[in-house]
Design a protein around this nucleic acid. Structure first.
Length: 435
RNA sequence: GUGGGUGUAGCUCAGUUGGUUAGAGCACCAGAUUGUGAUUCUGGGGGUCGCGGGUUCAAGUCCCGUUACCCACCCCA
């Protein structure tokens, strides 16, 4: 391997035609299901003003703190931009910029595209990765939260996942609930702080919530008996959570209430949830989401409730590979696009113009997958090429065919051949492709 | 940011205790009597063994450095 050859940047990968087959299957499944649930596609820029993310996700979140691809201001006083590390803040920004809060507050959107985080890559974690996410704006019903979870689960079911999936739910309460809780946590942790890890010590003032999900054993022990948010919940947010869980159950889902789910981003309120595929261990989360009733206001709009999820395709692909998914027949339509359907063969040099015209004529009739040789291959090699590329029919033209104004159609599977007059060509060809 | 592993043809890899012109399979190209795809057979192109330095009579093989990738931790998707 030449050492001076270019390679894709660390943490990114190319998707060549073969590899794109699986990805297209995921994408089509997502789009198809979005139609079913009546969510509409949006596309936002791949980069945004850095402040959009730092303010909405939280300065202390790891994503903002150390994982953003940031382009500093080009000149004194101009703006800093960052490649989007997630899709919710841009969606909320677009919602406000599009005038939705005033004109059409109820919107159900989805997005599908690349996100960027500057991290050390490893299995299931890339610097550029694809997320499929939905955002439902303008309604605060806990039933909508349940719909969003149901949507996410249905997506995995469509991909072929079974009962292995686990939905973990929790509530982050309202901002006032959290403020009360935050104070209590702070007071609770303060006395034993010296026995905790350095991360915890530095985080207690900035974000005491983060101490709860510290992975250090010693710290975890000290977390036992910490005040819970649940006991601080105001009546309204407690009722919201109860209704959310009850609705999910009525939809035949079995959420696991898990107070450990806190999500890494600041904008969540009330409902939060994750969908896990437990065999993946430490990286089992395939989907995360929740309600973010304060985000629209945070990015400059009138207060608007909203709820959504994001699914990472990378983790999903890994989980699918482990489960032997998708079923081959699910990929078939996408695989067929890679194959030639009709290959035009020229017997001699003098016949090449005729095959070029034939190919053009078939393409004008919108016959799919029409190809021919441009590398001066022998007849034998052209046939070989046709077989290798998956052609179902070969249309061969030689001096004889030209003299008789016909084309020789060869069924590559049965090896049958017949001379077809030009007038019947299209009919005969389509009949062969139908088989 | 911390730690571990790997780096030999386009791909997957083999290369014995360091020893002569570095191999295989697959892929690719061409041919096996003149207009036809299986299999088979024959031939061919293609590698300064990631890069730099060191040890040695001699290094793909040992040592050091460097770089890239992979994996784990952190965190997340």
């Amino acid at each position: 391997m030449a050492s001076d050859a270019y390679q894709s940047p660390r943490g990114t990968r190319d998707l060549l035609p073969e590899e794109l087959v699986r990805v297209r299957f995921l994408e089509e499944t997502a789009r198809d299901l979005a139609r079913t649930f009546h969510y509409q596609e949006i596309r936002t820029p791949l980069f945004e003003e850095t402040r959009l993310f730092s303010r909405s996700l939280g300065e202390t979140s790891d994503v903002v703190d150390k994982e953003m691809f940031t382009v500093p201001p080009r000149v004194e006083g101009s703006l800093s931009y960052s490649f989007r590390p997630e899709g919710t803040a841009p969606a909320a920004r677009a919602y406000v910029q599009g005038g939705c809060p005033a004109s059409a507050p109820y919107q159900k959107w989805f997005y599908l595209g690349p996100m960027f985080r500057y991290e050390r890559p490893q299995k299931g974690r890339e610097r550029q990765f694809t997320q499929f996410g939905v955002e439902a704006f303008g309604a605060n019903s806990p039933s909508l939260d349940a719909e969003v979870v149901d949507f996410a689960l249905r997506f995995f079911e469509e991909l072929g996942f079974g009962a292995e999936l686990e939905v973990r739910v929790n509530t982050m309460g309202d901002p006032e609930d959290r403020e009360r809780w935050k104070g209590q946590l702070h007071d609770y942790f303060k006395p034993g702080l010296s026995e905790r890890c350095s991360d915890c010590q530095s985080r207690i003032e900035r974000n005491p919530f983060r101490l709860l999900d510290c992975k250090v054993a010693q710290c975890q022990k000290l977390n036992e008996g910490a005040p819970s948010l649940r006991s601080e919940l105001a009546e309204e947010s407690a009722a919201h959570h109860a209704k959310f869980v009850a609705t999910l159950e009525a939809l035949g889902r079995t959420p696991k209430d898990d107070p450990g789910i806190v999500r890494g981003l600041d904008y969540y309120t009330r409902t939060v949830f994750e969908i896990h595929y437990p065999p993946l261990g430490a990286r089992s989360a395939l989907c995360g989401g929740g309600r973010y009733d304060g985000l629209v206001e945070e990015v400059g709009g009138t207060p608007t409730p909203a709820v959504g999820f994001a699914i990472g395709f990378t983790a999903t692909e890994i989980a699918m590979a482990e489960l032997g998914l998708p079923k081959p027949e699910a990929l078939e339509p996408f695989q067929r696009d890679l194959q030639t359907q009709v290959y035009c063969v020229a017997v001699s040099e003098e016949d090449r113009l005729a095959t070029t015209q034939l190919a053009s004529q078939l393409r004008a009739a919108r016959v799919q997958g029409v190809d021919l040789d441009y590398r001066n291959k022998s007849v034998k090699a052209q046939l070989k090429e046709a077989a290798k590329s998956g052609a179902r029919v070969v249309a061969l033209i030689g001096p004889d065919e030209r003299a008789a104004s016909c084309v020789c159609l060869r069924n590559m599977r049965t090896r049958d051949e017949k001379q077809v007059p030009e007038s019947d060509l299209l009919t005969e060809l389509l009949a062969l492709l139908e088989e």
